[in-house]
């Protein structure tokens, strides 16, 4: 199984705080507001990803995840609970504010009984065979795209900005994305992805969110690959913020010991 990104990415994707809507915002500013929203000092949650193929067959991945902001670096650790053949596998990521500094990543495979340093995966890789890439999970910096506010409209009763983002990098896996950003929560409620040929590739829809410990949290979302008719359902539960996770949670000791 390929393991890539980390909790922090997932939670950055999932959690937002309320910032009052401002008038005359540009597309760039809207995306920055989404990217830079505060997410708390630390977070704990249980993630269930259900991968559904075109025949309706399901595969379920369950992960317990912890993350903490250490100032200039963010550390996160994942413990895989299911399926059975990956149980007790753990994955740790340290990411840095320093521009150009790559994440450090380690994996612990219980069969090998050792912690192994791995190189940061390509941000275009899919996370655990799901329909989410790392970039989809929220780690893409606003400066990597050119953003344009297309319009303002309601989505499921929510006032939203609709922003189109076109990558500056040539040959990026998407030619453009279009996101519906809630005006008062600064979370993306829907996103369309277009492939390199400009064809509609995927839709991300947020189906449930709630305010937990003062932070808006997406609890249920679905990524649908239209071209292959894959779906990935992402459910977060037992989300806890600012609980004061011990610094020692993000160590080799805990990777081996598990939870």
């Amino acid at each position: 199984m390929k393991l890539t990104k980390i909790i922090m990415t997932l939670l950055v994707f999932a959690i937002g705080i309320t910032i009052h809507a401002q008038e005359n915002l540009t597309g760039q500013k809207i995306i920055e507001n989404v990217y830079y929203r505060e997410t708390g000092e630390d977070a704990t949650s249980e993630l269930t990803m259900t991968l559904i193929n075109s025949r309706g067959d399901e595969r379920v991945r369950e992960i317990k995840q912890y993350s903490k902001d250490f100032g200039k670096e963010e550390k996160s650790i994942m413990f895989f609970q299911a399926p059975a053949d990956v149980r007790n596998t753990s994955f740790m990521n340290w990411s840095y504010d320093e521009e150009g500094k790559d994440d450090d990543q380690w994996i612990y495979l219980p069969a090998l009984k050792k912690v192994k340093r791995i190189s940061s995966d390509s941000k275009s890789d899919y996370f655990m065979g799901s329909d989410f890439t790392y970039d989809d999970l929220g780690d893409r910096h606003p400066s990597e795209d050119t953003h344009k506010l297309l319009r303002e409209e309601k989505l499921n009763g929510e006032d939203c900005y609709v922003v189109e983002s076109i990558p500056k990098e040539e040959n990026y896996m998407y030619s453009k994305t279009v996101v519906w950003v809630s005006k008062d929560k600064w979370i993306g409620l829907k996103k369309e992805f277009y492939d390199e040929d400009g064809d509609h590739l995927k839709n991300l829809t947020v189906e449930k969110y709630d305010k937990i410990d003062g932070f808006w949290t997406i609890l249920h979302s679905v990524m649908h690959n239209i071209q292959k008719d894959h779906r990935t359902i992402m459910n977060l539960k037992d989300v806890k913020l600012n609980t004061g996770i011990d610094d020692n949670m993000f160590t080799e000791r805990m990777m081996k010991r598990g939870i």
Partner: peptide, 23 residues
């Protein structure tokens, strides 16, 4: 064999002391 099967378990006492990221 798989590496989990190649290694033979040994009866032993293992002590680990941790200091930050050191062990």
């Amino acid at each position: 064999p798989e590496f989990s099967e190649i290694r033979v378990g040994v009866t032993s006492l293992k002590f680990n002391y941790y200091l930050g990221s050191s062990a």
